[in-house]
């Protein structure tokens, strides 16, 4: 039971070790910090943190990918800086200090995106700013970085950012593939997967009636429901369903 609560909350107490004992830089414990949030302690499907942006930006894969990279950057470095300062931050004002750290990093990301990838920046609009209030960042700072050493906190930040990004991109793939028939639209490696080809766009699976596979796939049409934000809810619900069917330990008892 104790083990399962530890998985749920993700709070791992720092082991007390004698000073002389040498800690490996990337040992088993460090590896767990990265791999655990990917599935068994995923920020979105298990911890229910950071859902807002997961819904709003995932209608296409490319913006979700950019968002995921931005979040990994912010979680990793905010954890690092908070952990470095953890002993000098006074308890009552810790939330404000953490928020200032996060807001500074997000401002950096915002300005960088404006320069490097303006079309995506326009597409993400307020959601880049909303990384500040993305509960994963704050949640990990409170639960982990305030009580752990910098390097471990950094890895925990990277792991949780990746776990978040994994779900984000997975939802993006499902929604774009079934909603628009393409993948990575808007990026340099845009792919058109399924749909009726015409003079301007060629699809890998051509569903136009006069093509070879068209006689078999002529019935296929894009699912417009997938483009709506609500579809992200259904896709994540299905992910939760699959994950909890395999790992029955995660089932909600109440």
């Amino acid at each position: 039971m104790a083990e399962s609560t530890e998985i749920r909350t993700g709070v791992v107490a720092e082991p007390k070790k004698p000073e002389s004992e040498k800690e490996p830089i990337f040992g088993k414990k460090e590896k767990i910090l990265i791999t655990d949030p990917l599935l068994d302690n995923n920020p979105i499907t298990i911890q229910v943190l950071g859902v807002c942006s997961a819904l709003a930006v995932t209608s296409l894969v490319y913006p979700s990918l950019v968002m995921a990279v931005a979040v990994v950057f912010v979680t990793a470095f905010s954890s690092l800086f908070t952990s470095l300062m953890r002993n000098i931050i006074p308890k009552p004002v810790r939330l404000i200090v953490q928020l200032v750290i996060i807001a500074t990093l997000v401002t950096l990301v915002n300005e960088a995106l404006k320069v490097l990838a303006f079309p995506v920046y326009k597409q993400l609009s307020v959601y880049i700013g909303l990384i500040i209030t993305n509960c994963i960042v704050m949640g990990r700072l409170e639960a982990f970085a305030m009580a752990n050493k910098p390097w471990r906190s950094f890895l925990d930040g990277v792991g949780n950012g990746l776990g978040y990004g994994l779900i984000l991109v997975a939802v993006g793939v499902v929604r774009e593939l079934f909603g628009k028939g393409s993948l990575f639209a808007g990026s340099p490696i845009a792919m058109n997967i399924i749909g009726p080809s015409n003079d301007t766009t060629q699809y890998w699976i051509n569903t136009a009636a006069d093509s070879g596979v068209g006689t078999w796939f002529g019935w296929y049409a894009n699912n417009n429901l997938m483009v709506l934000p609500a579809a992200a809810m259904f896709v994540i619900a299905v992910f939760i369903w699959i994950q909890r069917s395999y790992n029955t330990k995660l089932v909600d008892a109440s």
Binding site: T45, V48, L228, P229, A230, A231, A232, M233, F234, I236, A237, I240, W241, I242, Q243, R244, S245, T248, V251, D252, S254
Partner: peptide, 19 residues
């Protein structure tokens, strides 16, 4: 279904309310 209890259903309901 056990795997959908709690969080899973909350996601589905919110999606339906959104529609």
């Amino acid at each position: 279904p056990p795997a959908m209890r709690g969080l899973g259903m909350a996601f589905l309901i919110t999606g339906l309310m959104g529609i």
